[in-house]
Lab assay of single mutants.
Amino acid sequence: KLATQLLVDLAEGCHTHHFNSLLDIIEKVMARSLSPPPELEERDVAAYSASLEDVKTAVLGLLVILQTKLYTLPASHATRVYEMLVSHIQLHYKHSYTLPIASSIRLQAFDFLLLLRADSLHRLGLPNKDGVVRFSPYCVCDYMEPERGSEKKTSGPLSPPTGPPGPAPAGPAVRLGSVPYSLLFRVLLQCLKQESDWKVLKLVLGRLPESLRYKVLIFTSPCSVDQLCSALCSMLSGPKTLERLRGAPEGFSRTDLHLAVVPVLTALISYHNYLDKTKQREMVYCLEQGLIHRCASQCVVALSICSVEMPDIIIKALPVLVVKLTHISATASMAVPLLEFLSTLARLPHLYRNFAAEQYASVFAISLPYTNPSKFNQYIVCLAHHVIAMWFIRCRLPFRKDFVPFITKGLRSNVLLSFDDTPEKDSFRARSTSLNERPKSLRIARPPKQGLNNSPPVKEFKESSAAEAFRCRSISVSEHVVRSRIQTSLTSASLGSADENSVAQADDSLKN
């Protein structure tokens, strides 16, 4: 292990032709098999893994070397290190390495390699500790012929580059190093199909959405987006994914797998022009299946994007999809995704031109529960009313008269009656009930004795009459309010007539 670390330190600071010789020695160290011998017992696995620490030291050392060589000349050094790393990870899946030390190597290698970024000039870069990406002036992410390196360097940008540029090249004859992302992409596909350690798979799935944002990485080298989509959909639809995973937390289920895969599918929607129609349908189907899991909100957001990006695919699945959405409970976490999906859909009339009455009724059935102001915040309630109004205007004229009683009944049950079921009123009724029952229970537990009763009969009569009056008032709060309003209006009217009579009498006395 110490000798391997010494080789790594020497290679990191070497800029001459001896660098390749040092890498040859490190490569021989990495070539050791990580498969346990067949006769190895389970209690000896930890000791055997400790004997392979030099392999881990070599791989982690290459990660440090690549981070240094990416910004220094010659660029061919970075290319050689990158290829060695990718080849080593491929061996893991070729020979099915399952030892804990092998999983640790893959975890740290993917953690580093999935941080690679590219700008519009195809320059590769890595983020620093502050998250700012520094791009290399010597390494690009696409394949290029050595003699055409300078031509590639002087080509115009596709868009303004992001991030601070690296140091300027030493001279005009500098050759750019090619670090094609397709090599890593193929290893990522192998990981999605064969990885057995949940920690490694979770890391890859968590980092892929951010990497897919940099389309330069994908399009400048032959990366098959179709295969990526197929691998992701197979993970969700195939039963073998959960069987092969180990190291998963207790209670791990298909729902947890959906939570990890759906963000990658959402990021892949922007590549729909490069996906086969069959793959697009598979993607939409997987998102529909996710509606029954805890990732339902993410799936609804993804389907909203699909309705804009892939209208030809979503239009066929939309009638059944809208009916499925009615089975989702009206909760605060689902309110905004569902209502925004319906609001977006209302502005795309070509998608729902074939809707029948059942689909329009489903839209109103989804939106009406969110009009309850005692359960949802003001934004959700306003958005629900907006969706109902928009869809009522957009639905066909023959359907409107049939939906009017349905909508008014839903609004009455969710908006008007919600004020009668407020917690304050319920607590008031509970308190009044307890007050009504309390005197009775006290009389049963403690019967009054005439000799020891010091309270006069008049006081008892007053208290009983007050309790009886309170019971009468607490029967119905709404009736009490109505009666008080009527009494107030009658009182004001009587006072007004009394004032008029007094004024008339005063005038008569003055005349006399």
Results as ranks from 00 to 15, higher is better:
residue 89 I to D: 00
residue 186 R to E: 14
residue 102 A to K: 00
residue 62 L to D: 01
residue 217 L to K: 03
residue 186 R to T: 09
residue 239 P to S: 11
residue 80 R to W: 01
residue 117 R to A: 03
residue 71 Y to S: 03
residue 242 L to T: 08
residue 220 T to R: 03
residue 74 P to D: 04
residue 198 W to Y: 05
residue 97 Y to I: 02
residue 53 E to K: 04
residue 176 L to A: 13
residue 153 K to H: 13
residue 241 T to M: 07
residue 58 A to F: 00
residue 159 S to A: 11
residue 246 R to W: 05
residue 51 S to H: 09
residue 74 P to I: 00
residue 222 P to V: 04
residue 251 G to L: 04
residue 84 M to D: 04
residue 61 G to N: 01
residue 188 L to F: 04
residue 247 G to A: 07
residue 163 G to Y: 13
residue 243 E to F: 05
residue 64 V to D: 14
residue 60 L to V: 12
residue 88 H to D: 00
residue 120 S to C: 12
residue 183 L to I: 11
residue 152 K to A: 13
residue 173 A to S: 15
residue 203 L to M: 12
residue 92 H to K: 00
residue 72 T to M: 14
residue 181 Y to N: 02
residue 68 T to R: 11
residue 66 L to D: 01
residue 64 V to G: 15
residue 152 K to T: 13
residue 189 L to S: 02
residue 145 E to R: 07
residue 115 L to V: 06
residue 64 V to T: 13
residue 216 V to C: 08
residue 131 G to S: 05
residue 229 C to I: 05
residue 159 S to K: 10
residue 118 A to P: 08
residue 157 P to K: 13
residue 235 M to P: 01
residue 62 L to I: 04
residue 120 S to M: 10
residue 139 C to Y: 10
residue 144 M to N: 12
residue 243 E to K: 10
residue 176 L to M: 09
residue 192 L to T: 02
residue 190 Q to D: 10
residue 104 S to T: 10
residue 90 Q to W: 09
residue 164 P to K: 12
residue 177 G to N: 08
residue 67 Q to H: 07
residue 240 K to R: 08
residue 139 C to M: 10
residue 99 L to A: 05
residue 127 P to F: 03
residue 216 V to T: 14
residue 184 L to G: 05
residue 131 G to F: 03
residue 99 L to V: 05
residue 104 S to W: 06
residue 103 S to G: 10
residue 123 R to L: 02
residue 97 Y to V: 02
residue 65 I to H: 01
residue 183 L to T: 11
residue 76 S to Q: 11
residue 192 L to W: 00
residue 182 S to Q: 04
residue 94 K to M: 08
residue 210 E to I: 11
residue 153 K to M: 11
residue 77 H to N: 06
residue 68 T to Q: 12
residue 162 T to V: 13
residue 94 K to Q: 09
residue 231 A to S: 09
residue 97 Y to Q: 02
residue 202 K to N: 08
residue 212 L to F: 02
residue 141 C to A: 05
residue 215 K to F: 03
residue 245 L to T: 02
residue 222 P to S: 07
residue 147 E to I: 12
residue 75 A to M: 06
residue 82 Y to H: 02
residue 209 P to G: 09
residue 234 S to K: 13
residue 227 Q to C: 10
residue 168 A to T: 14
residue 231 A to Q: 14
residue 67 Q to P: 04
residue 84 M to C: 06
residue 185 F to M: 04
residue 82 Y to C: 02
residue 76 S to E: 14
residue 96 S to N: 13
residue 240 K to G: 13
residue 91 L to V: 09
residue 166 G to S: 11
residue 121 L to W: 11
residue 206 G to P: 01
residue 165 P to W: 14
residue 224 S to K: 10
residue 222 P to A: 06
residue 95 H to P: 01
residue 214 Y to H: 10
residue 204 V to Y: 00
residue 160 P to Q: 14
residue 51 S to N: 09
residue 152 K to S: 08
residue 209 P to C: 13
residue 206 G to A: 11
residue 181 Y to C: 03
residue 192 L to D: 00
residue 66 L to R: 00
residue 212 L to V: 02
residue 223 C to V: 03
residue 250 E to H: 10
residue 201 L to D: 00
residue 206 G to D: 13
residue 95 H to W: 07
residue 142 D to S: 07
residue 71 Y to W: 04
residue 76 S to R: 08
residue 236 L to Q: 01
residue 242 L to C: 09
residue 230 S to P: 01
residue 226 D to S: 07
residue 122 H to V: 01
residue 179 V to E: 02
residue 233 C to I: 10
residue 58 A to V: 01
residue 64 V to P: 14
residue 64 V to M: 11
residue 211 S to M: 12
residue 213 R to M: 09
residue 75 A to E: 06
residue 133 V to W: 15
residue 142 D to R: 06
residue 57 T to P: 01
residue 209 P to Y: 04
residue 140 V to K: 07
residue 188 L to A: 04
residue 128 N to K: 07
residue 191 C to I: 00
residue 187 V to A: 10
residue 145 E to W: 07
residue 179 V to M: 14
residue 163 G to C: 11
residue 115 L to W: 07
residue 209 P to D: 04
residue 243 E to A: 11
residue 242 L to N: 04
residue 122 H to Q: 03
residue 138 Y to K: 02
residue 84 M to V: 07
residue 66 L to I: 05
residue 175 R to V: 07
residue 165 P to E: 13
residue 151 E to A: 09
residue 94 K to V: 12
residue 131 G to C: 04
residue 238 G to M: 07
residue 159 S to P: 10
residue 194 Q to F: 12
residue 151 E to C: 12
residue 58 A to T: 01
residue 55 V to C: 04
residue 63 L to T: 12
residue 136 S to A: 04
residue 81 V to K: 00
residue 226 D to F: 02
residue 122 H to E: 02
residue 98 T to P: 03
residue 194 Q to P: 00
residue 70 L to A: 04
residue 192 L to H: 00
residue 139 C to E: 02
residue 208 L to F: 03
residue 206 G to I: 05
residue 190 Q to V: 06
residue 131 G to M: 04
residue 149 G to Q: 12
residue 243 E to L: 09
residue 127 P to M: 07
residue 99 L to K: 01
residue 180 P to F: 02
residue 131 G to R: 05
residue 248 A to S: 10
residue 209 P to F: 04
residue 240 K to H: 12
residue 135 F to T: 04
residue 181 Y to T: 05
residue 49 S to Q: 08
residue 153 K to W: 10
residue 93 Y to V: 00
residue 217 L to Y: 02
residue 66 L to E: 02
residue 58 A to W: 00
residue 69 K to R: 05
residue 70 L to K: 02
residue 161 P to Y: 12
residue 76 S to I: 09
residue 239 P to D: 14
residue 73 L to F: 11
residue 250 E to L: 08
residue 175 R to Y: 10
residue 158 L to Q: 14
residue 162 T to G: 12
residue 188 L to Q: 01
residue 232 L to T: 03
residue 195 E to M: 00
residue 209 P to H: 10
residue 96 S to V: 09
residue 142 D to Q: 05
residue 149 G to C: 13
residue 133 V to K: 03
residue 228 L to N: 00
residue 83 E to K: 12
residue 166 G to K: 12
residue 214 Y to K: 03
residue 189 L to V: 08
residue 96 S to L: 07
residue 86 V to T: 10
residue 205 L to F: 02
residue 93 Y to Q: 01
residue 210 E to D: 08
residue 109 A to T: 13
residue 80 R to A: 04
residue 235 M to W: 03
residue 106 R to S: 00
residue 71 Y to A: 03
residue 247 G to F: 08
residue 147 E to Y: 11
residue 51 S to A: 10
residue 99 L to S: 07
residue 195 E to G: 00
residue 62 L to H: 01
residue 98 T to R: 10
residue 223 C to I: 03
residue 105 I to N: 00
residue 121 L to H: 10
residue 247 G to H: 13
residue 65 I to E: 01
residue 115 L to Y: 12
residue 92 H to I: 00
residue 117 R to T: 05
residue 153 K to I: 12
residue 133 V to L: 08
residue 116 L to Y: 02
residue 187 V to G: 04
residue 50 A to N: 13
residue 220 T to I: 01
residue 193 K to F: 06
residue 66 L to G: 02
residue 127 P to E: 07
residue 149 G to W: 05
residue 181 Y to E: 02
residue 68 T to F: 03
residue 241 T to Q: 07
residue 219 F to V: 08
residue 218 I to C: 04
residue 129 K to R: 11
residue 161 P to N: 11
residue 187 V to C: 14
residue 248 A to L: 13
residue 101 I to A: 04
residue 208 L to P: 00
residue 156 G to T: 11
residue 219 F to R: 08
residue 88 H to S: 01
residue 201 L to G: 00
residue 155 S to T: 13
residue 224 S to C: 05
residue 231 A to F: 03
residue 103 S to A: 09
residue 178 S to V: 09
residue 134 R to H: 06
residue 183 L to E: 12
residue 128 N to C: 09
residue 142 D to H: 05
residue 208 L to K: 00
residue 138 Y to M: 04
residue 195 E to Q: 00
residue 134 R to E: 06
residue 61 G to H: 01
residue 54 D to R: 00
residue 206 G to L: 10
residue 53 E to D: 08
residue 151 E to N: 12
residue 86 V to L: 11
residue 230 S to D: 13
residue 74 P to S: 03
residue 197 D to F: 00
residue 187 V to S: 06
residue 95 H to E: 08
residue 251 G to A: 07
residue 242 L to P: 04
residue 90 Q to I: 07
residue 147 E to G: 12
residue 188 L to E: 01
residue 195 E to S: 00
residue 144 M to V: 10
residue 247 G to I: 05
residue 214 Y to M: 06
residue 100 P to Q: 06
residue 182 S to G: 04
residue 214 Y to G: 04
residue 150 S to N: 10
residue 98 T to I: 07
residue 116 L to N: 02
residue 182 S to P: 02
residue 220 T to W: 02
residue 60 L to Q: 14
residue 66 L to H: 01
residue 210 E to N: 07
residue 86 V to Y: 02
residue 52 L to K: 04
residue 90 Q to E: 12
residue 119 D to Y: 00
residue 165 P to L: 10
residue 199 K to Y: 08
residue 225 V to I: 08
residue 237 S to I: 14
residue 223 C to H: 04
residue 128 N to A: 08
residue 88 H to C: 01
residue 156 G to K: 13
residue 68 T to A: 08
residue 164 P to H: 14
residue 207 R to G: 04
residue 156 G to S: 12
residue 196 S to Q: 08
residue 72 T to N: 10
residue 172 P to S: 08
residue 248 A to V: 12
residue 162 T to E: 13
residue 116 L to V: 07
residue 206 G to S: 13
residue 197 D to Q: 05
residue 124 L to P: 06
residue 151 E to H: 13
residue 66 L to Q: 01
residue 76 S to C: 11
residue 218 I to T: 05
residue 82 Y to V: 04
residue 123 R to K: 05
residue 79 T to G: 08
residue 149 G to P: 12
residue 52 L to V: 10
residue 239 P to E: 15
residue 144 M to H: 07
residue 208 L to W: 01
residue 154 T to P: 13
residue 202 K to I: 02
residue 195 E to V: 00
residue 120 S to N: 06
residue 154 T to F: 09
residue 252 F to C: 10
residue 72 T to R: 15
residue 137 P to H: 11
residue 178 S to P: 04
residue 200 V to A: 00
residue 89 I to M: 09
residue 128 N to P: 03
residue 61 G to I: 00
